[in-house]
Design a protein around this nucleic acid. Sequence first.
DNA 1: GTCTATAGCTGGATAGAC
DNA 2: GTCTATCCAGCTATAGAC
Lengths: 201, 201
Amino acid sequence: MPETTETTILAAAKKVFIKKGYAGARMQAIADEAGINKAMLHYYYRSKEKLFRVVFEQAMMGLIPKLDEALSGNGSVVEKLEKVVRAYVAHIQENEHLPLFVLHEIAQNRIEFIASMKSKAARFPNFPQFFMQIIQEQEAGKIRAILPVHLLLNILGMVVFPFIAKPVFCNVIEIPEADFDSLMKDRADVIVDFMKNALTP
Amino acid sequence: MPETTETTILAAAKKVFIKKGYAGARMQAIADEAGINKAMLHYYYRSKEKLFRVVFEQAMMGLIPKLDEALSGNGSVVEKLEKVVRAYVAHIQENEHLPLFVLHEIAQNRIEFIASMKSKAARFPNFPQFFMQIIQEQEAGKIRAILPVHLLLNILGMVVFPFIAKPVFCNVIEIPEADFDSLMKDRADVIVDFMKNALTP
DNA sequence: GTCTATAGCTGGATAGAC
DNA sequence: GTCTATCCAGCTATAGAC
């Protein structure tokens, strides 16, 4: 990706929006971060709203296709979920503010995102198919009974929560954030282990 | 609690702040919600910042002591965690925007909250003690090995995540929010079951 | 205590020179 | 394309009448 002014702005906007949220972000802060002038933001992206949409879309694009990559193919349910866990933990560790950003902005329903997302995303996960596979393995006695939706929520919850709760958690439990980070290095392994135990009949 | 103007304002402020976040909340919106005038907000609470602090503090007070209630006493680890799950699921179901609010605002570190919180909270959970109990039960072979911090994160993740992710989840998976809500009725049972299977040696 | 009116500022957006 | 200067709406906060 060449470093044009346009891409510099976008990178700066990502940083600021994802950290502060739409309402908390300031165009001035984005301009400063990009090392250029406020007017340029409007020259390239017209408005705060439009700039935000680009940032948000790209943020989602970094998440949704990862699910598809993990869930498609022909591994077992546990193998697929293990892929989900590892892919997300790794991705979030490199973008720590990302999940909270996405969750917060969607809760504000600033976005009617699914329509635009599904059409634009190169890959989109096939949930009905995956859920079916879960049920089949359960009927075959390979994994314990649990509604597929709940299983997915359990996994995603264990993956995502620690990162968005880090500041609260460190404060309440009183451990330094550095210690927390080093604990998180094993995070994927711990989740996979926990999941396997929970699902083994 | 008598319905004075002061309490009316606070209730309105809770509603607006928790739904929109600090940056997204408008004093006018709070005034409207309370059915009174903007000037009154300042008369009673001086500034947006000060009003926010009261709201935030009370929000945290609704969460932290619940942990203590569940973790103190003399049940087993699993029994205590089951209490945590049931208490939080119930509480969040009645305050659906609460967790995202707390997580988002703390991530913005608008709050150096632990100091003021620990001194004001009537009950504050004793984590070292609980973690010790976990280790003891593990050494006694009663539950599987897992670092106490990770275990707690797993449980809280499974509890909190579904509620904060509801809008995303419903959009991506394409199920109506009403269906999701009815799924969530069993949520506590599902988590408890999953946890027990994961922890049983 | 409660209201109306308004001050004062912040921040998104634009005009216009270069 | 990039900058400076500026407009104007929207917001917090206050003054002042009742």
